[in-house]
Design a protein around this nucleic acid. Structure first.
Lengths: 213, 213
DNA sequence: GGTCGCCGATACCATAGCGTATGCGGTGAG
DNA sequence: CTCACCGCATACGCTATGGTATCGGCGACC
């Protein structure tokens, strides 16, 4: 067996990051325990010999994958939105981003479920905290008080996460197509007070200020 | 054994249901793979000999545990609420129930994360669907149209689930104490239109009908 | 005191997956 | 042409985990 069992030309050498990405893929499907060297190697079309060239052990792979995920889930999210000057549109973009990438949602849920591992728990906690903090800032920029911004950002984030969950657990019940668009608009209208309402068309903002009661 | 299955707790002997409950406990902490005979036996203070008296194999245990969970998560929830005549209060009760039992939340999240197993996926799907259906009925009873009831019940359920998730993943960021009470009131006010306004004509419901746009 | 329900103890085996040692083809330098 | 080195293949050892089965013991109740 001296020949390669794969296409020869289209196979460059693997990098450590490709291994880490494959590890994330495995997590999305089977949790942390699916991040095993041999199955990953099979899926990548290589063997363990490749792995132990790039990594010292499995722990190093898990660490690299988590680092990659954390970076992509916070920096990427924020960087892709921050150029937007309007805080309302920023929040809308965040929502759209979250509801569009099905894979990212599954990945978060899988990692959050694997938080019996202390390393995973730490990263998930940091990611959640940073996302919440950024949402909080956005709501502050909308003109809400600190207290209201805290409550509404938590509310919005919980809904955001819950949508991913319901979408995964009961896909048949989750709105799709035109219904989803209505659902999405309803969420936006309910969860984001419009700051620049030059139109007298949005009287429901009054309800928002009723939070402090 | 001459008597029926009315054995009291005075006996140190375990029952099949106790095994199933322990299996659910294990799932809440470590997912489906934590439902292993030996660890469970250790935790129950017995050995595997006990297990294979009550169950044919591990599959039977998983099946029993899932059945127990499904029953308790749908029938119990509905039965404990249905006596309430006011649909508004019914929804409030459902919310309170969900936000109070931390363990039940963890259990749902753990099971939902273990839905790579087809049996688990099926049960989770049924439970989610039945919960959503009941919430939908409650919103219908509030006087919403079918379309609005669908959207708002999904919205409320997603938020409900998301709260459990955020509460678990970022407990430090989640409102607690007095702040939680405000948060809770905000959610209720936002997610449930009040039916018993003295006016037969509900002013804020107008916004709800705006959903259809 | 005998039977039976329940469990303890132990043995066996299958499997998965980590780590390691070494072989081996390709490739560029000289 | 050679040689060294990279990147991976192959093969193996090893451990841990856990499902399954068997048998013996013990207390309860007849």
């Amino acid at each position: 067996m001296s020949g390669n069992n794969d296409e020869s030309a289209s196979r460059p050498n693997l990098t450590a990051e490709q291994w880490a990405q494959a590890a994330l893929d495995a997590m999305a499907l089977g949790g942390l325990e699916a991040v095993a060297v041999e199955p990953l190697a099979r899926r990548l079309g290589v063997t363990k010999g490749s792995f132990y060239w790039h990594f010292a052990n499995r722990d190093a792979l898990v660490h690299a994958a988590l680092h990659l995920w954390e970076k992509g889930e916070t920096d990427d999210m924020i960087a892709g939105v921050e150029e937007e000057p309007d805080p309302y549109e920023r929040i809308v973009k965040l929502f759209k981003r979250g509801n569009s990438s099905y894979r990212a949602g599954r990945l978060y849920l899988a990692l959050a479920a694997a938080s019996d591992d202390p390393r995973v728990a730490q990263v998930v906690k940091r990611v959640s905290a940073r996302r919440l903090a950024y949402l909080y800032k956005c709501y502050l920029a909308l003109g809400l008080s600190e207290r209201d911004a805290k409550l509404w950002s938590t509310f919005a984030y919980a809904t955001f996460i819950g949508n991913q969950q319901v979408h995964r657990d009961a896909p048949d019940e989750f709105p799709a197509g035109a219904e989803f668009r209505e659902y999405f608009k309803l969420m936006l209208r309910t969860l984001i007070p419009r700051p620049r309402s030059t139109d007298p068309d949005h009287p429901h903002v009054v309800h928002l200020h009723g939070v402090g009661e």
